[in-house]
Design a protein around this nucleic acid. Sequence first.
DNA 1: TCTTTATGTCAAGTAAGCTTTACTTAAAGA
DNA 2: TCTTTAAGTAAAGCTTACTTGACATAAAGA
Lengths: 66, 66
Amino acid sequence: MKNRLKVLRAERDLTQAQLADLLNVSRQTINAIEKGKFDPSLPLAFKAARLFGLSIEDIFEDEVVE
Amino acid sequence: MKNRLKVLRAERDLTQAQLADLLNVSRQTINAIEKGKFDPSLPLAFKAARLFGLSIEDIFEDEVVE
DNA sequence: TCTTTATGTCAAGTAAGCTTTACTTAAAGA
DNA sequence: TCTTTAAGTAAAGCTTACTTGACATAAAGA
């Protein structure tokens, strides 16, 4: 699943570590999500959406499977 | 995390098993999510939103942790 | 050059999402 | 009463999300 975290971070001048702190996850988790290694949990997606003042759909892009 | 799956199902006259099929998960998964046993993954939340023609935020309600 | 900061990655472990199988209960119809 | 259907639940196992700790690299500044 694609996401706009890197850009949203850049717009706010946040490092991966700072974003991780704000979302109460590890830096490695942010890195892995940005790199597409895995998808965030739904609660984490909600947290990120709230933090950035956006909807989940604005941040994460679902690829339609079929 | 609260959700409106049961009501959305009822509005469309779907059983848990039918919804499970439509979302490609097991009936037990739907039951567990409806009963609040665990949260769906983000991909599953996207699927449900697409199926019902709603946003994730319309279906799942995040409780603000702090 | 030396140090610091940000990012990337890996390995091992825990926790949560999800599966299959199976049993139980309640409601409704024949 | 017997059967069927929907819902609830539980155990065991697999997969994925996430953790901590560690190491590597590149860029930038003193």
